[in-house]
Amino acid sequence: MSNLLEIKDLHVVYKTREEHVFALNGIHLELQKGETLGIVGETGAGKTTIALAVMQLLARTAVITSGSIQYDSQELIGASQRELQKVRGRKIAMIFQDPMTSLNPTMTVGAQVEEMVRAHDLENLSDLEIDKKVRKIFKAVEIHHRRRKEFPHNFSGGMKQRVVIAMALACSPELIIADEPTTALDVTVQSQVLRLMNDLKVKLNTSMIMITHDLGIVAKSCDRVAIMYAGEIVETGKLEEVFDKSLAHHPYTTGLFKAIPDLYSKCDRLVPIQGVASDPTDLPDGCNFSLRCNQCMDICREVDPIVNSYGNLKIKCHYLEQEYKGGNCDEQSTNRNKKT
């Protein structure tokens, strides 16, 4: 299967007068058709920056210093607004984190979905056809079409997120980027929304990038997982393998799993990851995780590790390299000049 989305060696720096924030430091990602990729990481790891870079919606202060983003063999970096307009919404749609702020409070939800349909209407549909289409979309996200005339403030959080999903689906995109779609919702509502998204994904055969900090959501809805730390992907692999505790993992992945209180077994004490998240304005030499790593060696503080394959997992770590020498070296991420 060919890759729908391919990100290669993507570097993004937020440049302000006072400081340079190294948000993404060499991201490699591939996404196949119909696949769901989960991106997990802490606040400030650069998850949302990836999403915005793909949509080419980065803030003005952000500079893509190197790398490429190819969607269906079309290069998105440097594409004209007109070309991007054809991709956004129609091919790639985004669901934002906070449904309370991503809807226009002065328009009825029906009008907002309709606007989306009209904006991307290529076939010059008649009003009646557009109405039909809107009704269909509302049905797909399980909102009664009578509620089209209501304003966002009449809706609960979960229902608002449904409207946002409806808008993302309006043009049946091939790829949906969901940036923490359920973080603002309650667990019971979250499970409703996740179920709805999964159903629609299967029905429409869309690919999805699910950005989240909750490993539980990833376990529920993703096929592949990428773990991010300080602007880098430290581990990628199939869901089953990343969650398999018997395999070797990046110390950060292991730490994340240990830090979550377990629902099904009794533990007296959690094992937190020591220290605080690395400062993206002042990343350490060598491995970005070296300051918090419990397996840190001398080499980690000096040389940036390369991505190696361990089975089907791709992990970026010196410790594993020493521990399992059989790993096949993957040349793609060597020789990077990080702080340019």
Binding site: V187, S191, L215, G216, A219, K220
Partner: peptide, 11 residues
């Protein structure tokens, strides 16, 4: 039942 659990056995 609706808590997402980070464990595939519970999927």
């Amino acid at each position: 039942s609706s808590i997402p659990v980070a464990d595939l056995k519970m999927k």
